[in-house]
Amino acid sequence: YIGSKISLISKAEIRYEGILYTIDTENSTVALAKVRSFGTEDRPTDRPIPPRDEVFEYIIFRGSDIKDLTVCE
């Protein structure tokens, strides 16, 4: 799965898409590269977040912050 395009939804209901870079089982983290944030879209939340235009080089997510993770390709 390393190198695959991943769609990830955080506990804050924010969806991110990026390339799976590393999975650290010891620290329970997932790192994505070339990440875009799509905001909360239409998911119900107390704090709606708009999508962002910039592409983040890397984002490291803690396993406890991840609600859903899907391989896109």
Rank of each mutant, 00 (worst) to 15 (best):
Y1F: 06
G3F: 14
G3M: 03
G3C: 04
S4N: 10
S4T: 08
K5A: 14
K5M: 11
I6S: 00
L8A: 00
I9D: 05
I9W: 10
I9H: 04
S10M: 06
S10I: 06
S10P: 07
K11D: 11
K11R: 12
A12N: 13
E13D: 13
E13N: 10
E13I: 12
I14G: 02
I14K: 05
I14H: 00
R15P: 00
R15F: 01
R15L: 00
R15W: 01
Y16D: 01
Y16P: 01
Y16T: 08
E17A: 03
E17L: 03
E17S: 03
E17I: 08
G18S: 02
G18P: 01
G18T: 00
G18V: 06
I19A: 02
I19V: 10
I19K: 00
I19C: 06
I19R: 08
L20T: 06
L20V: 13
L20P: 01
Y21C: 15
Y21W: 07
Y21A: 15
T22S: 12
T22P: 02
I23L: 11
I23P: 03
I23Q: 13
D24N: 15
D24M: 05
D24Q: 01
D24C: 10
T25L: 07
T25Y: 09
T25D: 09
T25R: 12
E26Q: 09
E26S: 08
N27D: 00
N27T: 07
N27C: 07
N27S: 14
N27Q: 14
S28L: 08
S28N: 12
S28R: 05
S28Q: 11
S28W: 11
T29N: 15
T29V: 11
T29M: 08
V30E: 01
V30F: 14
V30N: 04
A31K: 11
A31V: 09
A31C: 06
L32S: 05
L32F: 05
L32H: 00
A33Y: 07
A33Q: 15
V35D: 03
V35T: 03
V35A: 10
R36P: 08
R36C: 10
R36E: 05
R36G: 03
S37Q: 11
F38Y: 15
F38R: 03
G39P: 01
G39K: 01
G39A: 00
G39L: 06
G39W: 01
G39R: 11
T40W: 01
T40Q: 01
E41S: 00
E41C: 02
D42L: 06
D42C: 09
D42W: 05
R43Q: 01
R43N: 11
R43M: 00
R43Y: 15
P44K: 10
P44C: 11
T45N: 13
T45K: 04
T45I: 02
T45E: 05
T45M: 06
D46Q: 12
D46M: 15
D46A: 13
D46R: 09
P48M: 07
P48I: 15
P48L: 11
P48T: 07
P48W: 09
I49Y: 04
I49D: 00
I49E: 14
I49L: 14
P50C: 07
P51A: 15
P51S: 11
P51F: 07
R52S: 13
R52D: 14
R52F: 05
D53R: 08
D53Y: 10
D53C: 08
D53P: 09
D53W: 03
E54C: 05
E54W: 04
E54F: 06
V55W: 07
V55R: 10
F56A: 09
E57C: 04
E57Y: 03
Y58M: 09
Y58G: 11
Y58P: 02
Y58F: 09
Y58W: 10
I59T: 14
I59Q: 09
I59Y: 05
I59K: 15
I60A: 14
I60W: 09
I60D: 06
I60C: 08
I60P: 10
F61D: 02
F61C: 04
R62D: 15
R62P: 14
R62C: 11
R62E: 13
G63H: 11
G63C: 14
G63R: 13
G63L: 12
S64V: 13
S64N: 15
S64K: 10
S64Y: 12
S64M: 06
S64F: 08
D65P: 01
D65F: 02
D65N: 10
D65H: 05
I66T: 00
I66D: 12
I66Q: 00
I66M: 06
I66P: 00
D68Y: 08
D68A: 13
L69S: 06
L69E: 03
L69T: 08
L69H: 00
V71L: 11
V71G: 09
V71D: 08
V71F: 12
V71C: 10
C72I: 13
C72Y: 06
C72Q: 10
C72S: 07
E73W: 00
E73M: 06
E73I: 08
E73T: 06
E73D: 12
